[in-house]
């Protein structure tokens, strides 16, 4: 089922949490809402679920406007950041809750409930823990109970708020792979909120990058990394060197050298973002266009991070350590640099 968010605005008092946000999630897609805290990503997720009311705009699930529908009639699976498991109920009862509270005519029989809950507990690999209480489980196990509980109502869409936020790094990595696999199996349209870009890049089919209540870019992970749509995305996703430049006649000039841009009719100041691996390094030979000095070299496994002083600016460059040895460069040496690619944005 698809999710369509159309022109949603939401403010809390004077604070604008969402400013005219639109987003479409395709059927069966796993979408990440990525952004720093305060970017409005959790608010957007809660509005899709019906846990918050938008001030204006609408949310359609499978083409149906849900604005007027109460949360409990929406059949939206929601996994809360801190799981919010019912402490007074066993794991089994937690998962069965959504089935037991159905109106009498739609309620499955006890045997059917047991079958379905057992099946779900098998799916999240928690069969031996059915009789335990949430307090007796580890963080990762609680997370999986929360997921099984949300899936029990056969939700039209699955929404997860910072699903791995409260877990330690190792469990997080494990659970992430498992969720990816699970999503392939059940194939339900899902949206999850995260502030961890690694998580978004690894898990999501597409990422919606949010900042200050607006969506900056919606793209596949590689697209967002390779072709950031805005300055914010360039800075937020991975690391990029920020260089000021001047654009004229479609050419960006960085003092000593220049690069072609897409701006044919723009003349003025601009900002360029260059990934550390998009800067080439060579020995200085006297005919170089641009020359920098090596400030420091940090070995990071097979690659090395080289910090350069280039005029007033500092640049971070990633090179193979083998290549560095070949060049024979050490700290304090002058070197020649080339920029293979840059993302240039107008303004400063």
């Amino acid at each position: 089922m698809t999710i369509e968010v159309r022109n949603v605005c939401k403010s809390f008092g004077a604070y604008q949490a969402l400013d005219n946000v639109s987003l479409t999630v395709a059927d069966g897609e796993l979408m990440a809402l990525l952004g720093p805290s305060g970017s409005g990503k959790t608010t957007l997720l809660r509005i899709i679920a019906g846990l918050d009311q938008p001030d204006s705009g609408e949310v359609l699930i499978h083409g149906q406007d849900l604005s007027k529908q109460a949360v409990r009639d929406r059949r939206v699976g929601f996994v809360f950041q801190h799981y919010s498991l019912f402490k007074n109920m066993s794991v089994f009862e937690n998962v069965a809750f959504g089935l037991r509270v159905r109106p009498r005519q739609q309620r499955p029989s006890d045997a059917e409930i047991k079958r379905r809950v057992d099946e779900l507990l098998g799916l999240v690999q928690l069969d031996p823990f059915a009789a335990r209480y949430p307090a007796q489980l580890s963080g990762g196990q609680r997370q999986r109970v929360a997921l099984a509980r949300a899936l029990a109502i056969e939700p039209k869409v699955l929404l997860l708020d910072e699903p791995f936020g409260a877990l330690d790094a190792r469990v997080r990595k494990e659970l992430r792979r498992w969720v990816r696999k699970l999503h392939k199996e059940i194939n339900v349209t899902s949206v999850f909120v995260t502030h961890d870009q690694e998580e978004a890049l690894e898990l999501a089919d597409r990422i919606a990058i949010m900042n200050l209540g607006e969506i900056e870019q919606v793209a596949t992970p590689s697209e967002a990394y390779d072709r950031p749509a805005t300055q914010f995305v360039s800075e937020f996703l991975g690391f990029a060197n920020r260089l000021t430049c001047h654009v004229e006649n479609g050419i960006a000039r960085f003092g000593d050298f220049s690069l072609p841009t897409e701006f044919d009719n723009y003349a003025g100041d601009a900002v360029a973002y260059v990934r550390p691996h998009e800067i080439g390094l060579n020995r200085a030979n006297g005919h170089d266009i641009a020359r920098a000095t090596i400030d420091s070299i940090v070995a990071l496994g097979p690659t090395a991070r080289v910090d350069l002083a280039y005029g007033e600016q500092r640049l971070e460059v990633l090179v193979d350590r083998e290549r560095l040895t070949e060049l024979g460069l050490v700290v304090g040496d002058p070197c020649a640099i080339t920029i293979t690619r840059a993302h240039v944005f107008r303004g400063t």
Binding site: F12, G50, L51, D52, Q53, A70, V71, R72
Partner: peptide
């Protein structure tokens, strides 16, 4: 966030 703004509550 204020509890009153939450429709589910």
């Amino acid at each position: 966030m204020d509890r009153r703004d939450r429709p589910a509550l």
